[in-house]
Design a protein around this nucleic acid. Structure first.
Length: 470
DNA sequence: TCTGGGGTCCTCCCACTA
DNA sequence: TCTGTAGTGGGAGGACCC
């Protein structure tokens, strides 16, 4: 390393995480093209093994296209609960190194290991240690980027990813090799970086701009298809091209916030700290129907079910929010949202459903639903607040009211928010029952069919959705 | 490539208020 | 009392990320 005074930020990213977990749990899948995702007409690829990638399969690709490219691929539904378990094991490995961990996703995190260097060696040493330990504990491979900032560490971990050709036989412990000595890879940028051990790429202090500027502009955080199209009008192709543009030109091209952001990042200025305690800003649930839904009555039942799921997650997380939003994706893929913000934070499924169903019943929206049908429906709660009523006190009240009808529609949403909420008492009573007897022990009557709680209206068309952690 | 699900953040517009 | 303006919060939509 050229400098030991600057920060050591690691970006750890599991390799083909979901697919690798499936292979881990079912060794008969080893060496096969494995695709995790919904196999139905409207499914997409959530993750795929490197064997599938060799056929051009990529995450977010429609399942139909993935099947066309790789007809022999094995499709498996996702198991979010299982991925969460493994994720916890991985984070435990991180926690042995540093408390400064910023989880980005189940399979990805930033670590600030500046303080651990005296105890454990250089950033690259720590990266190799983490890789080896994660492999020992979980049997899964990961790639690690080491740099002085989050942006560069993230790009470095991408450069550390195995190529389709080299994935077989990789072990976490091998001799030191320079990146420039590696076989030509799949277009990943390695200029200015070194590869101190397999699966680890390090960009030393002082080499950031050289490494960064060689990347395609899309590599920058915040440059998606729309922003790239605007930048391309100015002849931008690489990050280096963005760095050449005057700040004012960038702001004019893509707006103030994004322009300032890109100006900083393209010049390798990224002082963002690793944030271990990021607060949840919203909790939501959305689903694509197997076929477009036109009946408002069906939509209302779906809203009830999704609200129930959101409420359960809010309660588990100890969260409550003031804004309820309903999201609709139409058959032409355009999106409409309707939201309502109250003065009281809520966390109960029936309260959320009450408000969401009200939004859905808005005449103009209801009419459009009947005429065009709905492809996707979502319910979310945001504007998190801390003024939620004391759940224990509410349950205590409920326990003294044995005659309370569990799913009495009660007052309207507006009344609910203006007066002590009966629905909130119901929701907390339901939560207490579920805590004791399981999630399916109690549910609104509208969600019960043939004596059991229904999962979704189209009944498991998409295993990826249905097998989630809910 | 005809596009899931769970999020975050930004921008624009509008209404309200001081 | 009326009008213009700036600040603020909510609603809606869009872009982006994994």
């Amino acid at each position: 390393m050229k400098s030991t005074s600057s920060r050591s930020i690691l970006h750890v990213d599991m390799d083909a995480f979901y697919a690798s977990v499936e292979v881990l749990d079912d060794p008969s899948l080893a060496g096969k093209a494995v695709i995790v995702g919904g196999e139905g007409a409207r499914g997409v690829v959530a993750s795929c093994s490197y064997e599938a990638r060799a056929f051009g399969v990529r995450s977010a690709m429609s399942s139909i296209e993935a099947k066309r490219r790789c007809p022999h691929a094995v499709f498996v539904g996702g198991r979010h609960g299982r991925y969460g378990e493994i994720s916890e094991q991985i984070h435990a490995v991180f926690a042995d190194v540093t408390p400064l961990i910023e989880p980005i996703a189940l399979d990805e995190a930033f670590l600030d290991v500046t303080g651990a260097r005296r105890r454990m060696g250089s950033g690259a040493d720590i990266a190799a240690h983490i890789r080896a330990t994660v492999f020992e504990v979980t049997g899964l491979q990961c790639s690690v980027g080491v740099a002085t900032s989050k942006l560069i560490a993230k790009l470095a971990s991408e450069a550390a990813k195995p190529s389709v050709e080299t994935v077989r036989g990789r072990t976490p412990r091998s001799a030191h090799v320079a990146v420039s000595e590696r076989a030509p890879n799949d277009g990943r940028v390695t200029v200015g970086a070194v590869c101190p051990s397999p699966g680890v790429v390090e960009v030393a202090s002082g080499d950031e701009r050289e490494f960064l500027h060689a990347h395609h502009a899309r590599a920058l955080w915040g440059v998606g298809p729309a922003t790239m199209e605007r930048l391309a009008r100015f002849g931008v192709n690489t990050v280096g091209d963005i760095a050449q543009l005057p700040r004012e030109t960038l702001v004019r091209a893509v707006g103030k916030a994004v322009g300032e952001h890109l100006h900083q990042l393209s010049n390798a200025i990224d002082e963002r700290a690793v944030e271990p305690d990021r607060l949840t800003k919203s909790v939501g649930h959305e689903e694509t129907f197997a076929s477009d839904v036109r009946e408002l009555s069906v939509m209302k039942v779906e809203v009830q079910r999704m609200s129930d799921a959101v409420g359960r997650r809010l309660k588990r997380a100890g969260l409550a929010g003031r804004t309820v939003t309903v999201k609709i994706k139409w058959p032409d893929f355009t999106m409409t949202t309707r939201s309502s913000t109250g003065t009281r934070a809520i966390d109960g499924g029936s309260l959320i459903a009450d408000i969401a169903q009200g939004l859905l019943a808005e005449p103009e929206l209801a009419d459009r639903i009947a005429r065009h049908g709905v492809r996707l429906l979502g319910v979310s709660v945001a504007n998190m607040a801390t003024d939620k009523p004391d759940a224990k006190a509410i349950v205590a009240i409920a326990e003294t009211s044995p005659q309370l009808s569990l799913f009495d529609t009660g007052p309207t949403a507006a009344e609910d928010r203006a007066s002590p909420p009966q629905n909130a008492r119901v929701d907390d009573l339901v939560a207490a029952i579920r805590d004791r007897f399981g999630d399916n022990a109690v549910a609104p009557a509208s969600l019960v069919r043939d004596g059991s709680v229904r999962v979704r209206s189209d009944q498991l068309d998409n295993p990826w959705d249905a097998s989630g952690s809910e």
